[in-house]
């Protein structure tokens, strides 16, 4: 299988890394080669986060080059716009419609663009916004936005949904199992 490139973007604290871990473990459980990479450190402090998951028969670099992502999953609209150029021509973007102000906006130094979603659609013809926060809340925890987002792209990934569910179960603790599975399925149904 040719390498399938997934880019996950969001804001530090949103669970981008956990979502990446779920996809990477699922690829491993499916017998594929996989590399996953994000840059953390400073990102923990509310900064922009970008993570790569590359799946295939043999994966060399852990880095996805701009213009080569098969799918972009963004947990926040502005971050979707920031990384939309990572997509291949014609590739798909799913983003959470809930916005989070960057510190530059919160402190009045910059304005959050009012037309982010229009700009996204203008660049990517296959962009889909979902209400991930309310779906996560329906599942039982606002923090499950990351599982909603993973769910929302399940049918577009070269991984079996059952395998992903199994990995989510294995990685979740106690009550989290039910919440995360519900969020995953909620995301899948919304897409």
């Amino acid at each position: 299988m040719k390498v399938f490139n997934i880019v996950i973007a969001g804001v530090g604290g949103q669970g981008v890394l956990m979502a990446s871990k779920v996809l990477a473990e699922s690829a491993l459980a499916s017998g594929m080669d996989v590399k996953q990479n994000e840059v953390h450190g400073m990102a923990q402090r509310g900064g922009s986060v970008i993570s790569f998951v590359r799946i295939g028969d043999q994966v060399h670099s852990p880095v996805v080059m701009p213009g080569s992502a098969d799918i972009l999953i963004s947990f926040e609209p502005l971050e979707a716009l920031r990384y939309v150029h990572y997509l291949k021509p014609g590739a798909m973007l799913v983003y959470n419609k809930g916005t989070i102000n960057p510190s530059t906006v919160a402190s009045g130094l910059a304005t959050y663009p009012s037309d982010v979603e229009e700009q996204i659609s203008g660049i990517c013809g296959d962009a889909h916004g979902i209400e991930a926060l309310s779906l996560a809340q329906e599942a039982g925890n606002a923090k499950a936005v990351n599982m909603v987002m993973v769910g929302s792209v399940l049918k577009n990934l070269p991984i079996d949904a059952q395998v992903v569910e199994g990995v989510v179960k294995a990685l979740s603790k106690d009550k989290g199992v039910e919440v995360n599975l519900k969020a995953l399925r909620g995301g899948a149904a919304a897409a």
């Binding site: 900064g47 922009s48 150029h85 990572y86 530059t104 910059a110 700009q119 990517c124």
Partner: peptide, 14 residues
């Protein structure tokens, strides 16, 4: 790629 990076977006520094 599909597009050049979108310019002049509000930065999101830590």
């Amino acid at each position: 790629g599909t597009a050049a990076p979108v310019e002049n977006l509000p930065q999101r520094p830590p």
